[in-house]
């Protein structure tokens, strides 16, 4: 068995839908409109987000798993899906009251929330905002 010389990761994808508005309190109304364009629409707009989580760790020979997927699902549901799904990010998630809910910032916030997962090491979080845009953060 070559297990010790291989690096194995478990990847899991989750889905949630949320609205956001890109508007920075550090910019004027005119600058906000210019920089964020349609995304600055005062009423916001929404996306179907996909969150791809990758974890590494030893594969437990008794279970064949880096982490039980059920444990990971429960953790991600509690930390990310429940608080974000069908929400307005800047109005209902305290991290985005001031920080602009761009998908860069969303990706980093999700990483911060998931890095405490106790059963494996969080390698990376990738957030797909639309089929044309995705963002990835590995904690550095």
């Amino acid at each position: 068995m070559m297990a010790d010389i291989l690096h194995i990761e478990l990847g899991r994808r989750y889905h949630f839908a949320a609205s956001h508005r890109l508007h920075s309190v550090k910019l004027t109304e005119e600058e906000n409109r210019r920089i964020y364009g349609k995304c600055n629409n005062a009423y916001g707009h929404g996306h179907n987000y996909t969150v791809e989580v990758r974890l590494s760790g030893a594969v437990d020979p008794a279970t064949g798993m880096i982490s039980n997927v059920a444990d990971l699902d429960a953790f991600v549901n509690e930390q990310v899906i429940e608080p974000f799904d069908h929400r307005s990010l800047q109005d209902e998630v305290s991290a985005f009251r001031v920080t602009v809910p761009t998908t860069e910032n969303l990706c980093m916030e999700i990483f911060e929330r998931l890095k405490a997962f106790p059963h494996a090491k969080l390698e990376s979080v990738r957030v797909v905002e639309t089929s044309n845009n995705s963002f990835e953060y590995a904690g550095d």
Binding site: I5, L6, H7, I8, E9, L10, G11, R12, R13, I66
Partner: peptide, 19 residues
């Protein structure tokens, strides 16, 4: 090697240190 069991679950395998 990336193996998808479904579109939402996969495993990646690399040689250690070469990811």
């Amino acid at each position: 090697v990336r193996l998808y069991e479904s579109s939402d679950l996969f495993a990646d395998c690399y040689r250690n240190g070469s990811k």
